[in-house]
Write a protein that binds this DNA or RNA. Sequence first.
DNA 1: CATTCCTATGTAAAGGATTACATTGCTTCT
DNA 2: AGAAGCAATGTAATCCTTTACATAGGAATG
Lengths: 345, 345
Amino acid sequence: MNKRATIGDVAKLAGVSTATVSRVIHTPDLVTDSTRKAVYSAISQTNYTLNLAARNLRQQRSNAIVVLVPDIGNTFFSEILAGIERVASSAGQTILIGHTAHDHMREEKYLNNLLNSQADGALLLNGHLPASVATKIGETPGRRLPIVSVSEALADQIVPHVGIDNDRAAALVTQYLLDHGHRRIVHLRGPVSNILTCQRAKGFARTMKAAGLQVSPDMFLDGDFTIESGIAAASVLIAAGSMPDAVLCANDEMAIGLMSRLAEHGIHVPQDVSVVGFDDIAFSRTAQPALTTIHQPRAEIGERATRILLELIAGDNDASNMITTLPVELVERASVALNRGFTAT
Amino acid sequence: MNKRATIGDVAKLAGVSTATVSRVIHTPDLVTDSTRKAVYSAISQTNYTLNLAARNLRQQRSNAIVVLVPDIGNTFFSEILAGIERVASSAGQTILIGHTAHDHMREEKYLNNLLNSQADGALLLNGHLPASVATKIGETPGRRLPIVSVSEALADQIVPHVGIDNDRAAALVTQYLLDHGHRRIVHLRGPVSNILTCQRAKGFARTMKAAGLQVSPDMFLDGDFTIESGIAAASVLIAAGSMPDAVLCANDEMAIGLMSRLAEHGIHVPQDVSVVGFDDIAFSRTAQPALTTIHQPRAEIGERATRILLELIAGDNDASNMITTLPVELVERASVALNRGFTAT
DNA sequence: CATTCCTATGTAAAGGATTACATTGCTTCT
DNA sequence: AGAAGCAATGTAATCCTTTACATAGGAATG
């Protein structure tokens, strides 16, 4: 028992050929009861386990998909992952999570290493497709590379995408603030290189303009989706000396960071300033006050994306589902108040 | 360009043998400048990419380690993962994250599928080793299976472990509460099947006894490490009609859930009841009030565990590091008050 | 009874890399 | 000049499965 048993060892012990052993594993129905039993017994005697590297090599496929996640610590992604896993595992696919940490090198590493031999397809939650891979997509126009972008859109729409309409979601929440009488609204953005950030900022600006409000650069604060950047943004507001009516944060982490810093300074949400977030992560419910935010159907986003990916892998090249947009929902909690002295029109 | 180029195609185009191409990729120094250039050029002309399945098969190793995580959404794990990745990637290992969701079937699937051919070793963050794998460890006493348990200990100490001393950490924080004059302390546990839960509960009970306090079943509440179970525990306390002096929660999520529910009922932390958590996740800083908790050196835990795993894979079977215990730190924030009418002895 | 068809199994060829060993020229030393 | 040693490259075996094709025996059919 020094080395791992191979299919040959099992075959010898059971007195059959390797082909038969393989059939017992793969398609048991093709094999007689008696031989099947003999093979099973030999398998357990030898402690045989399949060598997946060999199978993958032979079958030219790995039954695994790789999921690129920019930040595992962000709870927003875990529910998407849950949806992905549900569909993938019921289709017999293993999922491999690659943590990219917003690092383009890692993205490329995971995609090159895995896509080209260890995985059959990829789900991109990171909003970035390395140039080397993008090139390859262009080169094979017939057979699309099995890649789907999820939640965060790519700069070029060259692979199918599943997500929400960020522009309209931002417009929705902006209008909600306007309806509550807020006029001086500040938008705490994500990193400007992020597509999602741009879409949300656009929806915000458009809605403000439509309400007859001037959009100026000082209505924007820059963050990077972390709690810390929310805290920093609060410090900026505090230093400025006057609070806006409301702050629209591009995600919940920043909103929570912002609120905690405001609380330290005795500034009350929503009495002194209203705050809204984006994503509806678990901690938005436990924030003080509970955070009003935009809820995304995360599990469904993951499920849909995975189904599309599986179709691509199977070769069902239905171009109809290039863009899947799922609806969002505004979750009203306690972080937005009616503006002082405002009366609904 | 219908099929993927193989090393043979590159060799033909460059006018060399496959061995030379392999050497250019693997050990470029062994090859002349001119041939190296020719091979590189052939590689880019053919769009050649290595087939890792073939390499893994031949080399009998995958240069990948699998990390089993029980709950990706729990922010506690992400910093451990960051430590793991730092060490692993500098050693040229890819890491594959398997999300087990506390599901023993999945644990087994990931370990069997991956350990036996797609990964060289495993890091267990899930506190459970499937029986089928445990058996195999016993069978090969000479060559230890490359597995390391991290943070959450296993029931049987059969693989190296890296983590903290949960018993003493719980004792530390319990003593801290006692020193602040609290006597009626309730411990909100994790699931009782969890080793970590038992260790922390033991440290708590021991310290209470040492202070001359009776330990009774009604000093324990049961949770499952989720925010929801923290909220539920708060409801139980509220329904009971009287608050204890302090609540020691087995993790931060539950502490945060608990505090949010108390706040809804107008019960103030720490004036009415003190609360402490465990783990020091990012959101413990933004909680209202900021949560006093036990900080674990998460990144270092991940790094140490990975180093030990790499040694095991390399065959450096140094039995000296079966148990690595790292120090914890009590982070004082704002969720613990001096008990009313208490004077330090 | 001869033919055909099926079922259960075996034989052997991929699949794409790595690598031990062999080979071929050179350089260098005596 | 002959021997030895070295550097660069080639040849071919190997890793372990899957699977197309072949075969053998038995049942069904005419």
